[in-house]
Structures are given as structure tokens and as C-alpha cells.
Design a protein around this nucleic acid. Structure first.
Length: 422
RNA sequence: GUGACUGUAGCUCAGCUGGUAGAGCCCUGGACUGUGACUCCGGUGGUCGCGGGUUCGAACCCCGUCAGUCACCCCA
């Protein structure tokens, strides 16, 4: 029988890596707490219709990347490909949105059936932040400042740059899309196959093509900025002022078009060149029409999501991994004293509840147990052997090259170890 | 979905134009020792991703398939 293995693009995170993941998660938790955001949790599985309506019927995500299936009732369900849709559905369903302001965050796995590559996986972890009921540019700025705060916490701020763009209201974008289509139709023979595919369905996405020929063609194309309303421009300019006041460097990238349909007005991405082809670590923007589009009362909103794998990769390539946690003590258990050893371990854990206390289980001579204690990086070995145990004593050995050790009574071992660990 | 490269012990890799596999690390037994690490001696561990084909003979050549990596596409 063939060996069982993980689904393609779905990765196991092994003990050697979990401390790094925990560091990223904890940093994120500190930052959202600092900004007063509340956690929301919602299912990984939703009606397929939710994502179709939120993300957009003609986006790559719903056209070819969703894990969809019929359940036993015949309902078509999908694993969530992103978080915003589910967040909006949950918040609206429970009445959190109407005439209210909400600052929410979430984290969890998302699923997209794409070909895996560096920084892109079929199951991936996202941190997301969504803010509802705030129309002004100050909430947009707050979201960006929040993300910048996380880069500071992770010490990766210097490796990231902020790009922003104003993509206007949806009506404006539609008008611009028609103008762009009209322009490109005149140069139809020069379009590559991707551009042809999107010419009518989603012409804006041709803008961020990596094909130099397309970019050359687009140089003379109509510009989105010319189709955006004065109100939208004013919002965008106010945001730039707020960012400058907040000490956030940014560049306006007129080709920045997000892949999900629900965005409008200002959008942003944090990008890096230290991750290969997957340069976007965090992306978001306003989505003022989405709540209504999903059946709620009109509610303005903005948010962003970031890819945890990409943050972890960045920390690795930039050498920012946290040190592996080390146990405080390893109890070396001599022959015939395993009951006493377990009792000692319990006493130590009660006295030092925040320390890691390992007790050797199973056979093995003391020498190889000590070897294991060193290998785990324990600070002290507590050696409990039959003869000393009968005398009510054990040895505490410091696990460094000096190898200092002292004999202490079983009763006072917790206090002595506590003093040593100070 | 497309392309390129890769797939030999738990890990990192050798294996010359095809003659049925090796090293280091890890693990483990012993010697030495400050009950670990260092040094020395020994040991466990592989139907060479899988399935076909060519051949007297395939880890090596051919086809297929699966998986990995990177890139395109797209996105976090």
C-alpha cells in the first residue's frame, strides 16, 4: 500500500518551526490588542454562493481555485478562499454591523487550489483585520499604521515597502474599464492570451500584467486616475497626509489593482523583494459596497489580510527566528525509582508552574538519559538514583561545560531549583 | 492549468560511458571520561518515488505516473 502523505500544497508545521509561528501569532495578537480590535471566529466552510457574490464570479479565485463540493444535503459548499466574505457574513448575520462601528480581527486557514510554489500553498494561514462603519480616510490610515506596527514588532520593517492606489468607486471603475477595453480593442492583435481573456470580463487586471509588451501597450492607455471622482481623490489625498503624519513612507502605484472585486477607493499592499515571486505580504483596502452586496444594510468598511507563511518565510530569510524554548530541568531516573521520580516531577511543576520540567520515562541508563538532557538544551539535570533516593537525596547538575553539581534533599529540591533558575 | 529542474538510508548527499548500493550526521552497543559533549572501536537502517519498457543485466537509458522545488498565471 502506498505511503500516506499530506495533500499537495498542504504543509505540516513541525516542532522545529512552531516557535517561529507562535512568535508571529503572538506579535499579531499584541498589535491588534494594542489597537483595540476584537477577535471574531467563523467557519472554514460556507455556501459557495457567499464567495461567488463577495469575491466576484469572474475572478480566478472563484473560477478555478475554490475547493467546492456538494454535501449530503445537496448544498454546494466551499472551503473559504479568503476571510473577508465570511467575516462580513458572520458579523451581519448577528447584527454587529447596522449603525455600528466594529473593529475585528481573525486568523485561520484559507484554501485555494493553485499550483504550490514558494510562499503560496493550497492551505495557508491568514491574519485579517476588518473595520466597519467608518467612512473617513482615518480608518484606512489606522489599518496601515496597525500593519506597520506589526512589522516593527517582528523587526522586518526595513524589508517592506508600502504601495497604495486609488481605484475609485465601482461605477467609476466600470466606466474606466469600458474605456480601457475600448482602447485595447484597437490593439487587439498585440494582446497576449491572458489579456484577451480578461478584455471583457476584468480589463483592470490587465494593468498589473508582468508582460513587458503589455506594459508598453498600456503606457498610452486611458488612466484610471482620470475617471475617479473628486470626492474619491480627496479621500485618497487625505489618507496620504495621514500616512505622512504617521511617519509611514509609501509610494503611489497606479497599476496596483487588487484581485478581488469588492475593493473600492484606496487599496494598499505591503511588498518585499526577499520572497521571490510572491512579493505581497499584506494587502487590503476599502470595500464600502460589500456588506450591501451580501444582503446587509449599506455599511462602509475597510480591511486587510496578510499571509502568515510569507511572514514566517521572511523571518527565516532575514534571520529573525526566535530561540528554541528550552526546558528548565530534566529528571534522570535510576533503576527502580520511577514512582519517586514522577512524584518529584509533580512537586517541581507545582512549585515552578511556568517552567518546563521533563521526567525521563522508560528504560535507559543514566548516561544516555543525561545525553538526552543535554540534547534538549535543559538547564539542569536532576539525577535521582536508587541509593541516593533511599537516603532522601538527589543531585542537581548544571548542564554546561562547568558541570557544577550539588546534593539536595528531595523535600527541598523545588526551592533549590527555583533559586538556581532565578 | 502551463513550463523547467529534481526524487538513492530518519537528515545532507556520493555512485565514473548500464554489471543487483556507499559516506557524513542522527540513533545505538562498547572503550576512555568530569554518569553529556570531544576521541577510538562496533552495530541497526535502503525492493535507489511508483509502474511499465529496452537489455544477458537498469539507481543509471526510454515511456508513463506520483511527489517536491522554482517560475508563469494569480494572490496572502
Amino acid at each position: 500500500m502506498a505511503k500516506l502523505q499530506a495533500i499537495r500544497g498542504m504543509n505540516d508545521i513541525l516542532p522545529a518551526q512552531t516557535p517561529l509561528w507562535q512568535a508571529v501569532e503572538q506579535a499579531f495578537h499584541r498589535v491588534v490588542r494594542r489597537f483595540g480590535y476584537q477577535e471574531i471566529r467563523f467557519p472554514v466552510l460556507e455556501q459557495t454562493q457567499l464567495f461567488k457574490r463577495a469575491v466576484g464570479e469572474v475572478t480566478d479565485i472563484v473560477e478555478k481555485e475554490m475547493y467546492s463540493f456538494d454535501d449530503r444535503n445537496g448544498d454546494n459548499l466551499s472551503l473559504r478562499p479568503e476571510g473577508t466574505a465570511g467575516c462580513v457574513r458572520a458579523a451581519d448575520q448577528h447584527g454587529l454591523l447596522y449603525n455600528q462601528q466594529q473593529r475585528l480581527w481573525y486568523q485561520g486557514p484559507m484554501f485555494r487550489h493553485e499550483r504550490p510554489q514558494k510562499g503560496r500553498y493550497r492551505q495557508f494561514q491568514q491574519f485579517g483585520v476588518e473595520a466597519f462603519g467608518m467612512a473617513g480616510p482615518d480608518i484606512d490610515a489606522e489599518l496601515i499604521l496597525l500593519s506597520a506596527d506589526l512589522w516593527r514588532e517582528l523587526d522586518i520593517a526595513s524589508a517592506l515597502t508600502l504601495q497604495i492606489n486609488n481605484i475609485g468607486a465601482s461605477a467609476e471603475r466600470r466606466a474606466y474599464g469600458e474605456a480601457l477595453t475600448a482602447y485595447l480593442e484597437q490593439h487587439r492583435e498585440q494582446l497576449d492570451s491572458d489579456a484577451l481573456n480578461r478584455l471583457y470580463s476584468n480589463p483592470l487586471r490587465i494593468l498589473d500584467s508582468k508582460n513587458p509588451d503589455m506594459q508598453a501597450l498600456l503606457a498610452a492607455a486611458p488612466r484610471l486616475a482620470d475617471y475617479v471622482s473628486a470626492e474619491s481623490v480627496g479621500h485618497f489625498e487625505a489618507l496620504q497626509t495621514l500616512l505622512t503624519d504617521g511617519g509611514i513612507a509609501f509610494e503611489v502605484n497606479p497599476r496596483l489593482v487588487r484581485g478581488l472585486d469588492y475593493y473600492n477607493n484606496c487599496v494598499f499592499e505591503w511588498v518585499t523583494d526577499s520572497l521571490g515571486a510572491q512579493g505581497t505580504v499584506c494587502g487590503g483596502g476599502r470595500y464600502d459596497g460589500l456588506v450591501e452586496q451580501l444582503g446587509g444594510k449599506p455599511t462602509v468598511a475597510a480591511g486587510f489580510a496578510m499571509g502568515a507563511e510569507r511572514l514566517v518565510l521572511m523571518l527565516e530569510t532575514l534571520g529573525k527566528e526566535p530561540p528554541m524554548p528550552k526546558p528548565a530541568a530534566y529528571i534522570v531516573v535510576g533503576n527502580g525509582v520511577s514512582r519517586e521520580a514522577q512524584a518529584l516531577a509533580m512537586a517541581l511543576r507545582a512549585a515552578l508552574p511556568s517552567q518546563g520540567i521533563l521526567c525521563h520515562c522508560g528504560g535507559g541508563k543514566p548516561a544516555s538519559q543525561l545525553k538526552r538532557a543535554f540534547a534538549l538544551g535543559a538547564r539542569y539535570a536532576l539525577v535521582l538514583e536508587a541509593d541516593s533516593c533511599n537516603a532522601g537525596e538527589l543531585k542537581i547538575r548544571q548542564l554546561d561545560d562547568d558541570g557544577n553539581e550539588l546534593r539536595v534533599s528531595l523535600a527541598e529540591a523545588p526551592a533549590r531549583l527555583a533559586a538556581l533558575l532565578d
